[in-house]
Amino acid sequence: MTTDAIRLYPGKPEKVYFFGTCLVDLFYPGAGLAGIQLLEREGIQVLFPQDQTCCGQPAYTSGYYDEARAVAAAQLGLFKEDWPIVVPSGSCGGMMRKHYPDLFRDTPQSDRAKEVAGRVWELTDFLLNVCHVHLEDVGEPVTVAMHTSCSARREMGIAEVGPRLLQQLGNVTLVEQVRPEECCGFGGTFAVRHPEISAAMVGDKVQALADTGAREFVTTDCGCLMNINGHTEKAGQGIAGQHIASFLWERVSGQGGKS
């Protein structure tokens, strides 16, 4: 799980594929839509293959490679043209970019998997470093904290991207939590296999976010969002989060983009 030493960003393309991820699809479609609108705002035509399902990560990290491969193989065929594939998740993006080559190693789809992997970009990274977005904030003044997912931070190496986008927003004050790099305790099936440890981790994460004084936080990943929001809601800790795409779209469009 090392990050690329150097990432070579492509020029801004005419079209992109959007891979929404299964969590966004079912629970946070607004975040997906916001991401698509942010891309369209840059003059990019967004292609959404209706046959997409899941990147395969849950099975992969549980060790069920055969099942993960079958599901991932179904995605490989969706991106026929040479456009970049934009994913509103560091975790699913990391799966596709970093782990597809390993998953398909020694199989006939190996080359195809590597080719697809090389085109995968996390949404905010793509907005900042490929589209070079300029965000004009039309929202009311607000203070937010940010939780960057571990996969966005370490697999995709984009810890600085979210804060840089937020800093473009004139009315947004970004506050930092203690131990910003510490995991929220989601970890996919980890939260189910080790619920007590996961609960201790999310408890600490929620405390760290609440201690910033912010009432809102944003995150790059819906897994973290589901975990942290679920806990703050249950504990009534008075801080609520949304996907960073929803937040950014809300700020630049003036439309509430809550998912």
Binding site: D25, L26, Y28, P29, F48, A191, P195, V202, G230, H231
Partner: peptide, 26 residues
């Protein structure tokens, strides 16, 4: 939802999936 909801609320399904929203748009 088992251990998950011991310290969290359950995640809520959206009324429409992103697939549906995108289909409608298209």
């Amino acid at each position: 939802a088992g251990a998950w909801t011991r310290v969290r609320t359950a995640p809520r399904l959206a009324p429409k999936t992103l697939h549906q929203l995108m289909k409608q748009r298209a």
